[in-house]
Design a protein around this nucleic acid. Structure first.
Lengths: 224, 224
DNA sequence: TTCATGCTTCGATGGTAGCCGAAGCATTGT
DNA sequence: ACAATGCTTCGGCTACCATCGAAGCATGAA
């Protein structure tokens, strides 16, 4: 039964931690639930078997997210019922520094702006995303050629895909990787819109004032 | 947590048995869940404390029903999630004789027709029901005077209420009791619309052909 | 290669909650 | 009044399952 899965306090804590749609690593979920990693591992495999969460491997991490909105909906319903009887739970927000906004992930843009960029591109049908697979649309090709002088030929690579969904560390949502992600980040640098921070080892990406404006013009969501 | 309540198999069986909106007695629920009455009693008090079910005392029975549609909705959602992973449950239907249709409950009409009558009266604002309390509206008074020659004065009684919701044994939904329920049943008999079955001890109420028509004209729901 | 990190599997422990038998109330019927 | 029925409470038993320590695999870094 599915309810039994949600019934356990440890698992319930994990699930509510995932309710915002972001993905969390197994160890983070363990900490959220206040249990050791090995216990969390057991819980997570059960949740996965029950179809409530989906794993995504990223390097040596395993990110977990809720399978889909239906799951989130049912969880909200349960929370609603719980709220009526007086019981309630509160969730704490994230607690990260200012590099959440923009940073380098390998060779492409990550952080709030990176996620925002992919969101907008998806919204305007520049790319089509299905799970982890992303493909560039013809509208997307036109857009890139016109505004960023990026042609499809530049993106060809023997082993690396053009587009790839990469899980964002701070936002825990996807941003754009692949040769396109790299090319766009490189272009931003060439155009003096942004540059990696000078301090060695830092992954922060600083946007110039004009760069920020230009970026917002192309990929802004109206919230800045 | 609410989910923990639904998580237990015995409780889940009880809840799914209640999903059709009808009320069941504690012992019936115990049988449904395949446990002894004392275990069921423990489960039911937990479900009640969690706000999932509501009890209603009726003689020496205790009928339980789901508190409201929200609860049913969440349960359906959970069942939906469970269905996706392959697990499913089936429910069996009722198994009663033909006296389900119309019978005497103390001195008023019960059975399918009794429930149908109250439903229709509620629908047409002849009565207003809030939980177990029912009150006659002015429209209801006019209706009774016009079609059944029943006046409010006839219904007055020192200790017995005019209207009362009575839980129907076969339908497990409310029908109309109180002095009004009795007066209406008596009127049906006087009008030769219906009469108690001749065989002694039987609670069956037989409607005449014209009585059936007249009754349907006043309280029919279009399904007959 | 070797080391470190993240996660999983194995084995053992313990607490919790479901379960039933027996007794105790409450309500109804005779 | 007494018995019968329906349900609850109490006490003890048992089984399940969450939990953790330790060891085993992976992946990535040096």
């Amino acid at each position: 039964m599915v309810a039994a899965l949600v019934g356990d306090p440890a698992r319930a804590n994990m699930l509510t931690a995932l309710m915002n749609g972001r993905a969390l690593t197994a160890s983070e979920l363990a900490q959220e639930a206040g249990i050791t990693p090995q216990t969390a591992s057991s819980h997570l495999s059960k949740l996965e078997a029950g179809g409530l969460v989906e794993p995504e491997k990223q390097g040596r991490h395993r990110y977990y997210r809720l399978t889909d909105d239906d799951v989130a909906g049912v969880l909200e319903g349960l929370a609603g019922l719980a709220a009526r009887t007086g019981h309630m739970r509160v969730r704490t927000g994230p607690k990260d520094p200012a590099l959440r906004r923009a940073r380098i992930c390998y060779d492409h843009l990550a952080g709030d702006l990176g996620v925002q960029m992919l969101d907008t591109m998806r919204e305007r049908n520049l790319v089509r995303q299905k799970k982890q697979d992303i493909e560039l649309t013809t509208e997307g090709e036109r857009f890139l050629a016109k505004h960023l002088q990026i042609s499809s030929e530049m993106l060809a690579h023997p082993r690396r895909p053009v587009c790839k969904a990469c899980l964002d560390w701070s936002e825990r949502r996807h941003h754009l990787a692949g040769t396109l992600g790299a090319a766009m980040m490189q272009r931003f640098a060439e155009l003096k819109w942004a540059a990696r921070d000078a301090t060695p080892g830092s992954r922060v990406v600083n946007f110039t004032r004009t760069g920020e404006k230009q970026f917002a013009a192309l990929f802004g969501n109206g919230k800045d």
